[in-house]
């Protein structure tokens, strides 16, 4: 994977220690985020997609979580090796994050204006008045009417969708190079999901080389918004490809299953397609291919050996024995 990478993740392992057992939420993940792209990470609950995102800016609660090994290279430095203070300078300013739950991700005792100006005052040498101006502009950008007055209101005076807009404004206020959005629309009404996704992409209007990492379990969201997508299963990358290619010619059986399970309006009256079986427990992952327990085209060797992630066509990577013939 070459190209002008903004952020490179190499062989990232994040483990959670629960009692005597170790949950390998992320085991050996490598990918890169290029300049000016929207990268989607898709997977079921428990596939480690959120943990991957949190690991990028070291937000893993420790204990029980621990980033066991790997590198996250940003601007020539390994984020995982920096001190708390040094990471603090990157957080918010270069890499910002939007959380899943808008209802709890704003501090209930602070006014919106204070929350918004905080990262500005922390990262830049500007006055409170200037910070306030920029905060009002940021609220305006995310479509909150009468922003100046609303700066003096508390989170409980905002609705869920409005709070998520505030979160987006807060994440974008320092014009970050990378915006990580961890299921930003999951907790919202379907009717405003599209608006929120659009707002998020505005970060690229303000800064040309900015990239967005969008984490979701919704392939439709990926198809609409992303340039490239990574499909996760069992703590590993199973397939990575440009979105158009992924949707038209999915190679991994899991991706095929996901795409097949999207309901279509024309198929009224049919049963919905689903991938048989359940996600394996994170404490008890299969020995070989992580998807072997549910795969329709499973081979004998899938249960004992794990395939490598291979580039089958340029830019299209897949982890499956069935695809080895294609190479």
């Amino acid at each position: 994977m070459a190209g002008d990478a903004l952020l490179t993740v190499r062989n990232l392992h994040t483990h959670f220690h629960v009692g005597d057992t170790v949950a390998r939420a992320v085991s050996g993940v490598s990918f890169e985020v290029r300049k000016n792209e929207v990268l989607g990470i898709v997977g079921e609950s428990g596939s480690g997609k959120s943990v991957t995102a949190l690991s990028l800016i070291r937000l893993i609660p420790d204990p029980p979580g621990r980033i066991a090994q790997g590198e996250v290279l940003f601007g020539g430095r390994d984020i995982l090796k920096l001190s708390y203070e040094e990471v603090g300078k990157i957080r918010g300013r270069d890499i910002a994050m939007i959380f899943q739950e808008p209802m709890t991700s704003l501090n209930p005792v602070f006014k919106i204006g204070k929350q918004l100006t905080e990262p500005l005052l922390f990262h830049y040498d500007i006055t409170r008045a200037e910070a306030r101006e920029r905060a009002a502009a940021a609220l305006d950008l995310v479509g909150i009417p009468d922003p100046r007055r609303r700066l003096d209101e508390y989170p409980h005076q905002f609705s869920g969708g409005m709070r998520q807009r505030v979160m987006i404004a807060m994440a974008m206020i320092c014009d970050p190079a990378i915006l990580i959005a961890d299921e930003p629309t999951t907790a919202l009404d379907v009717t405003i999901q599209a608006q929120i996704l659009e707002l998020m992409l505005k970060v690229q209007e303000k800064r040309e080389d900015a990239s967005v990492i969008l984490i979701t379990h919704d392939l439709a969201v990926i198809a609409e918004t992303c340039d490239r997508a990574i499909v996760r299963y069992g703590g590993k990358i199973q397939e990575a490809a440009p979105v158009a290619e992924l949707c038209e010619t999915p190679l991994h059986p899991y991706t095929k299953g996901l795409l097949a399970s999207i309901p279509h309006a024309q198929e009224k009256g049919h049963r919905l397609n689903a991938i048989a079986g359940n996600v394996p427990s994170i404490f008890d992952l299969p020995l070989g291919c992580k998807f072997s327990t549910r795969c329709k085209d499973v081979l004998d060797r899938c249960h004992t050996e794990e395939p490598e992630l291979r580039e089958v066509t340029p830019g299209h990577w897949v982890r499956c024995f069935l695809m080895e013939d294609l190479v």
């Binding site: 300078k89 918010g92 994050m97 739950e101 807060m170």
Partner: peptide, 12 residues
């Protein structure tokens, strides 16, 4: 809670 994580994510 998320607001604490959000504050860390802002670099505080």
């Amino acid at each position: 809670k998320d607001y604490a994580a959000a504050a860390i994510a802002q670099g505080e």
